[in-house]
Amino acid sequence: MAERAQPQKAQDKLAFLLSLVPYLMDHDRVSVAETAAHFGVPEEQIRDAVRLISVSGIPGETASYQHGDLFDISWDDFEFNDEIVLTNLVAIDDSPRFSAREAAALIAGLQYLSALPEHADRAAIASLQSKLSRGASAVPSQVAVEASETDDTLRLIREAVEHGVQLKFDYLNSRGEHENRHVDPLRVESVDADWYLRGWCHLREAVRTFRLDRISDPIVTDEPITHGATDVTLPDTLFEGSADDLLVTIDVAAGAEALLADYVPDGATSTIVDGRVRTTVRVSHYHGLKRLIASMPGVATVVAPPEARAVVAEWAAAGADRYR
């Protein structure tokens, strides 16, 4: 479940250089491998950075970057032993502060964690927040997350992950059927107000995504998991495709496409038709589709196939009939 490596921007590379130098200063001699492991980056990235640092410095008195105005390393150690030893230091003494937005992002993340049972140590979190504020170069931006209530299902999922065992629960699928599921839990994600469990489903023998609010009677079993986080690649989209999926053509208001992003298959194209975006979504059956479309009235309309349009029309009309 390795994260995809993102191409680094020059700004990120600068932040990395400014962070790497103080780390190397604190370690008289450290291997490239250890440094790479510590920062969680490929070894070659460390070597590139060290090469750049070793030719960098300040213009100096002569304004011409004389030898003593540059960082220097022990080249023998670097080239033959893959070790880093700084032999001349310039300008930098210590680690940089966090930016206001960096501190704010971590603080908002801490606020999220504080809602979870295992991180309920509010005093520790408050002390960390104040350290981050003081360690930022400006007052952290005002970004905050509401303290949500502790969800018991989340606690049980965490427990199952910790013990490497399967979670068993009753799941109400979007067709309205109750099913007993055994799942190897892999990750919990939330989108807006909705929480999802992503895991290996033993009933479907595939990765599946479950809404937490459709899970009832969760039980931590003593059956070990068969698929762990390192064995399975979770797709970036929330919902997994299968060969039996139905493709549906939809018109959606410009600007609202993002709301359907999880349902749009890879490589789908979109065109503009009458000022709306026409695209394709993938659904496992029309029961999920009718709920999705009815929750976006006026925003999304099914164009084809006709059976899908009929299912949506019937669902909405049955709802409207209740108000007669």
Binding site: D12, S19, P22, H38, P96, S99, E102, A104, A108, G109
Partner: peptide
């Protein structure tokens, strides 16, 4: 927020 957090963590690792 994900990009900002990643950068903050790099700075945090600077402390060793």
């Amino acid at each position: 927020l994900s990009g900002e957090s990643r950068r903050a963590i790099i700075k945090l690792r600077s402390l060793g």
